[in-house]
Design a protein around this nucleic acid. Structure first.
Lengths: 339, 339
DNA sequence: CTGTTAGCGCGTTCAG
DNA sequence: CTGAACGCGCTAACAG
């Protein structure tokens, strides 16, 4: 590794002269600057980030804690985080909890030993179920800023970024009704998550508002280990809905394909709407009507909020420490089969 | 931030006493050890990783450079990397190149300023197309070990982990023939990638070996911006294959759904095989016959190889510096529609 | 214009 | 048993 010391030795000057020369200090003669820079370039000198961090107490790295990197939504958010972080000059260190609260606690520990300047987190399923946020509470007591997204809780005071799950579904029911649909079903595999509940609530409320009643037979909750394809097939056969809203990212596509195999015409006899993105919608024919979650925007905004907090900390910019922002990223329904 | 210094001040002892006490040194009285540890626990003291790194010249962090985190294959590998890295006690910092050689060069720069102990990389598409590996060559000259996976090149000397793309397709043709298929088609959207070429070559060779000829009309190369669904539909109508092998992760599922919409019975009239994983195969009905890439295993092995090199560097273990390993992870075909 | 000194947080000498 | 001194690589305040 090339260090200032080595350059200094080679040039027979002091370390600080080299340091200053490389930063174009006007305390150093142009001649020396030139000499130093030439050698630095030749030996491909790179200032050691670790040493810089130790001095400045900033690592220019942010930590991201997510439940699962294989979940398409989270990988989209992560992608957005990467993009924005890159723009602001931050590196990203990611840890996945696999939905375990234990790993979440560990992750927070790891990140609180000075490796990152800030943290972005979506809580694990277990954390939500156990309703135990003590590790997060503890973390917010420290000086490292934290931003929560998607899986959030009122119990923790910090900036948050979420999508309007409730409204997304509510509005979907509304426009399906406008298209003349009369028997709208709701299929979910994520009812134990907050987001899943919000979406189900949106559906229930909309059913009341637009149809005057809510038929609970039209909600299909699928448990983790069941044969999704089979369950949906039976459900469609039994209930014959003319529209299906999927609360998650897979059931929409599956429903379309099942319906086709049952000789149901889409969108004539059945509209299918679900969360997803462009790639997901490609998987079915006709394409799924997709509620686009703006995963990358969520990532972008999370980084921006975090950067604001970090700047406030380092540069003492005017940022009210006691008031936190909860930002709601709207969903968008595009394309597909329901027109 | 709680430091040794603060603890020392609080307890009115010297910094080194605190340091030793925390590490159970027998130079320190049990009484003092107890006192120190109690306070450390109370204040939740965590040794500063940055300072440790500066001293030891090790960061216990590995850097990962991948073309795209939204690509399911790479996110699976990344997941495997996370798992193994975690086991070995390493953090993971990830950078995505978005298939740009420029970003790849940058990424390597970023990671070579002391932030990571080792690097795992899959090259960008642009790097491969331009055939320009100088930045990688340069990197291998430094002391930071590097492991390449999936997108690799002979030009660079380092450990590598790849899958047997050629054999995977070759064997697939073989078993489809065994099932009585006579007109096997090959659909690809990734012909400009090495892996795409290997797979196409496997198909070509197998066609010769098992059918005595190769009909190039049965290879469908789809360009980036075309309407995949439409192109495949026309292709099937025109060529009427009785089996389709998809070189990538999307065309298999799409083909099944298109075929169904054309009233083609699967698997009776048409078998469809493609790369993917369990989730992907759920997207079609009947399910896709899936060539499983073992993404996580690739990640696991990459980390293991890297850890070996890093250990060799730090602890001088017996590891031949001049001989590098190329590990081939076999594919596996599971389930689906072709029986 | 250049060099010396100090200090970021830590662990490891070496002296008391 | 305890503390002072040193060095990891770097910058900044202070001397010359």
């Amino acid at each position: 590794m090339i260090t200032l010391k080595k350059l200094a030795k080679e040039l027979k000057v002091s370390v600080s002269t080299v340091s200053k020369a490389l930063r174009d200090s006007d305390e150093i003669s142009l001649e020396t600057i030139d000499k130093v820079k030439k050698l630095a370039k030749k030996l491909n000198y790179k200032p050691n980030k670790i040493a810089l961090s130790l001095k400045s107490n900033r690592t220019l790295t942010i930590g991201v804690i997510i439940p699962d990197i294989l979940n398409r939504f989270y990988s989209k958010v992560l992608d957005g985080i990467h993009d924005s972080a890159d723009q602001y000059g931050y590196d990203v260190i990611t840890i996945t909890t696999k939905e375990s609260i234990l790993k979440e606690v560990d992750s927070l520990q790891i990140l609180s030993s000075g490796t990152v300047d800030g943290v972005i987190i979506a809580m694990s399923e277990e954390t939500i179920n156990k309703n135990d946020f003590s590790h997060l509470k503890e973390f917010t007591m420290k000086e490292t800023p934290i931003v929560m997204f998607d899986r959030v809780t009122d119990k923790i005071n910090c900036d948050k970024v979420i999508i309007d799950d409730y409204d997304a579904i509510y509005n979907e029911v509304k426009s399906l009704k406008k298209l003349g649909r009369k028997k709208i079903a709701f299929i979910t595999t994520i009812n134990d998550l907050n987001v899943g509940k919000y979406r189900a609530n949106g559906f229930r409320k909309a059913s009341f508002d637009f149809f005057g009643k809510f038929d609970k037979n039209l909600i299909l909750r699928i448990s983790k280990n069941s044969d999704i394809q089979l369950v949906i097939k039976n459900f469609i056969n039994k209930n014959k809905p003319d529209a299906i809203i999927s609360a998650d990212i897979v059931c929409g596509v599956i429903s379309i394909n099942i319906a086709r195999s049952l000789e149901i015409e889409i969108p004539k006899e059945l509209s299918v709407v679900g969360f997803g993105d462009k790639t997901i919608s490609e998987y079915s024919s006709p394409k799924l009507t997709t509620i686009y979650q703006h995963g990358s925007e969520i990532g972008n905004r999370s980084v921006e909020l975090l950067v604001d907090r970090m700047n406030a900390k380092w540069f003492g910019l005017n940022k009210n420490t006691n008031s936190y922002i909860t930002e709601i990223i709207p969903t968008l329904t595009i394309g597909g089969n329901s027109k």
